[in-house]
Nucleic acid binder design. Structure first.
Lengths: 365, 365
DNA sequence: CTGAAAGCGCTTACAG
DNA sequence: CTGAAAGCGCTTACAG
């Protein structure tokens, strides 16, 4: 004996369904659905009546039902692997908030970039969850197996700061080259000439781009990039320490060090201070990323701030908005977005010893 | 004209459903369901046949369908608000990995702890998503409105490091008092007597507990806790800097400072070094949390490592495992779990100047 | 040990 | 502008 809940209001305790709303509003469930999905073709008066009942009953459409019946799951996936803590925090906050604003939810999955069956892991997750889109963070955004698995499953994705920007893939990033160029220009404008650079690992996108920016700025100012002032690193603190020991043992020491990321810059800072150097007066140091630790040391680090939160919000929008009509781009070309970074000038950089004032400081105002 | 996909194999392109599996295996969908859910009462031979077809077809049950039909959603929610980056990263990794192992998925939501309608935000999210459980991190785990909203929605939750441990709520934490006691004991055993303490904000759980541990250890060793050596702080770097300036201006300076968290300890470190003190020889410094930055400075910080990942895994298990039969606790009493922390002794602590060797070092072995 | 039927709560084509 | 019907792909009671 099955008791259908089409009688009277509804069974107490259980959450209200679209049927309950339809009955109380005196319309069909289809009309309720139309109102909830902002579909056109509902009389204003009807719409208001439905909305009132929805509010009264505190009706919330169940995600699983919408997902099963319709084409959308209202789920956005965030895939990451061993990211810097700062990265996760920012990306996650931006993505989660933007999702909520749009009635979506953020599902995060932690993967091992080197797992042999990573494509199967992705396939498994995607076919169970059916997310409407996926956000890939480094280094997963450069993992061909992951991207192929997603493409096979016809799941749209956005790459955050990918190594290579392809016209076939949507991506969000900052202009690393330009940012590194600006940092270098800052050092040069302070009067530095012997500027060392600590590189990141060769297999990471950012490494090459940041070095390129450094080199470009140096050459543009007629400064040479000496091989002995370019030190290898791998984005870790210890590699920054090691690089500093090398650099500071040169016959002519650099007056400034630009490390391709903050962790290494912090290593340089620690090493320099241990060697008795005063930062920034004896040695200026600049990093990249504006990690939380950059502001938790003395002197706080001059660095580049990537707008993690904004980048994540943008990524979510690129996955959600295409469903709506209000975007101009009529062709289905995937988009590449470049967001503005911010140069954070703090106390780890100043003019080199014996150099009175910044060289170029003719304000144009 | 509706084309049912009960013909032949299945329509090409579309993902296989339970019906496809049932047909190819020559059983009913109910049997397939039994096999997939590890229900008893399926002949071994039948089970194997079904499993083979599942593998061949790469069949993955769709979450939305399972969720709509059944009592479980296979979704675990993680609620957080502005946590330290290190916290998010660890918690998230542990929770996401444990979820995947169990066929669950982790949905994260970022909330504003001070939002007036936070209970409605939670209610909204829970009634749409229907997660099988929820993990609350500080300070949300101490937010009565959030807890009530969850309880009203009959969504089980686990509190991570809550301020108050209630028998009505499941929780996972470490023993803050004991950990702080051990840090203090370490300093005392090195020979320190004038040990300063930098407190956390009064409204945070950990603050009081850590101070309690500090005080307990001091008193146990017959050392007095002088009011002028206990400085207020708010868990931020600047408050650590400020506290250090106060403490180091006392008539008799402390030889060691124990800060209730790492960010403040880093502030103390930065301030001490700026004042020309050598750490640890002039001043020993200890923190709490083992934040990433603790290892990104020189000297690296002696601190307490909370097993974030393990705590998160445990939290997930406490939400998932009750569904199974294999846990001993027959009564439905919520559980409180206390996990082991780890003392990280690094280079920011040593014996005070003029003190040859650690005072108490009679090894009991 | 196995299965036929009903139902979960929505959206998708249709039809008017 | 509105609605009746079918269906999404599973699990839940049943029944044998």
């Amino acid at each position: 004996m099955v008791i259908k809940n089409t009688a009277v209001s509804s069974r107490a305790g259980a959450a209200p369904t679209i049927v309950d709303v339809a009955e109380q509003a005196g319309v069909s469930i289809k009309t309720v659905s139309r109102v909830l999905n902002h579909e056109p073709g509902v009389q204003e008066k009807t719409r208001e009546r439905v909305l009132k009942v929805v509010a009264d009953l505190k009706y919330r459409p169940k995600l699983s039902a919408r997902s099963l019946a319709g084409a959308r799951s209202f789920l956005i996936g965030l895939l990451y692997y061993d990211p810097s803590a700062a990265f996760v925090a920012g990306v996650q906050k931006g993505a989660a908030l933007r999702c909520r604003e749009a009635g979506y939810h953020l599902v995060v999955e932690s993967l091992h970039n080197d797992a042999l069956d990573i494509d199967q892991q992705v396939e498994r997750m995607v076919s169970a969850l059916r997310p409407d889109g996926m956000i890939l963070t480094p280094p997963l955004c450069d993992n061909a197996k992951v991207i192929k698995a997603l493409s096979d499953a016809q799941t749209p994705c956005v790459l955050m700061s990918p190594r290579v920007v392809s016209p076939d893939e949507r991506s969000v990033r900052i202009d690393d080259v330009h940012a590194a160029e600006e940092v270098t220009n800052l050092l040069i404008s302070l009067g530095h000439q012997r500027i060392a650079f600590v590189q990141g690992p060769a297999d990471q996108a950012a490494s090459g781009l940041r070095y390129e920016g450094f080199e470009r700025a140096m050459l543009a100012h007629g400064l040479s990039v000496e091989a002995e002032l370019v030190q290898a690193g791998d984005f870790t603190f210890p590699s920054g320490v090691a690089a500093a020991h090398q650099l500071l043992s040169r016959r002519v020491k650099p007056t400034a060090v630009f490390a391709a990321n903050d962790d290494m810059a912090l290593g340089v800072l620690a090493a320099a201070q241990r060697l008795g150097l005063s930062v920034p007066t004896d040695l200026s140091i600049a990093g990249f990323d504006d990690s939380p630790a950059a502001n938790l040391v003395w002197p706080p680090l001059t660095t580049v701030c990537q707008p993690m939160e904004a980048m994540a919000r943008t990524a979510v929008e690129m996955l959600i908005l295409p469903n709506r009509v209000d975007n101009e781009t009529s062709d289905s070309a995937p988009q590449q977005r470049v967001l503005p970074y911010q140069l954070q000038v703090r106390n780890s950089t100043c003019a080199p010893r014996g150099h009175a004032a910044p060289a170029i400081k003719s304000k144009k105002a």
